[in-house]
């Protein structure tokens, strides 16, 4: 059984089809790149997967569980974490607090435990902190020295890293990354490529939206191409690189018709 099966999913916004019968599957442990020109429906697909956007038709199966009827926090509880295209950080929380929020699903302190503070609450917090620090170590010295800084004081690239870290501390099985290198310089992007490989080595399946072809070709095991809401190609990076239809979609229709 595939980890994630997307079966003929369509999304329409008031008659406008953002996704048209898109189908593909993700196997456990893969890194799959999702590419396509602007407006191809990549982020819409992410929003469907994380239950922010209901699918008009089709099915989404995550390790056999239907995602369509769940709400976003329930999808997260199944082990699907995501980042957003425009960084959605908690501006007035520190780096450490982001990681603790990221551990939310692995903790169980409710109102009464928060008030009574039995011993396990302190253990749980210490564990979350440990896990947060371990996760930050993946980013080398980018975030660790800024543990108690407020997120809105971080650089743009660090905010993106923080978002990934927040998703990772939840120990997801599937990680959805929406343009993680947007706004980064080539050196920083290369760091993200290394990071994504490390994430896979942790046993996490990654679905990645990316515009930077160098990143996508360098890291993906397979690539799915969307254009105008339709899947136009799927295959190994070399295949996609040579695919006529993909070239047409990227180069614009002029070349296509010629």
């Amino acid at each position: 059984m595939s980890l994630l099966e997307i079966q003929s999913v369509s999304v329409s916004f008031g008659g406008l089809m953002a996704l048209k019968r898109v189908s593909f599957a993700l196997e456990e442990g893969e890194i799959v790149g999702l590419i396509g020109p602007n407006g191809a429906g990549k982020t819409t697909l992410f929003n469907c997967l994380s239950a922010f956007q209901p699918a008009s038709e089709g099915h989404l199966r995550y390790s056999g569980i239907a995602l369509e009827t769940l709400s976003p926090h329930q999808v997260a509880a199944l082990g699907v974490a995501r980042t957003f295209q425009t960084s959605r950080i908690f501006r007035r929380m520190t780096v450490l607090e982001h990681l603790l929020v990221g551990r939310h699903l692995h903790q169980r302190t409710g109102l009464w435990a928060a008030i009574a503070r039995p011993a396990w609450v302190a253990r749980e917090e210490a564990e979350a902190r440990e896990c947060g620090l371990r996760t930050l170590a993946l980013f080398e010295d980018r975030l660790l020295p800024r543990l108690h800084d407020f997120a809105d004081t971080l650089s743009y690239a660090n905010r993106r890293r923080l978002e990934i870290a927040r998703a990772l501390v939840a120990e997801p099985r599937l990680l959805l990354l929406d343009e993680p290198t947007a706004g980064m310089n080539p050196h920083e992007s290369a760091g993200i490529v290394q990071l994504i490989k490390k994430i896979r080595d942790l046993g996490i399946t990654v679905l990645l939206i990316e515009h930077d072809m160098k990143v996508i070709m360098g890291v993906s095991d397979r690539i799915v191409v969307l254009d105008h809401g339709e899947k136009i190609a799927e295959g190994l990076p070399e295949e996609i690189r040579r695919n006529e239809e993909v070239l047409r979609a990227y180069m614009g229709r002029r070349y296509g018709r010629a």
Binding site: F52, P72, F84, L105, A167, A170
Partner: peptide
């Protein structure tokens, strides 16, 4: 005790970004 706990963090996360809070579970 409430605001310095997991519950209080969830409150602040909702204030800061509701969608991100949801996707953190």
């Amino acid at each position: 005790r409430i605001v310095t706990s997991r519950v209080g963090r969830a409150f602040v996360a909702i204030r800061e970004d509701e969608l991100a809070a949801q996707s953190a579970g």
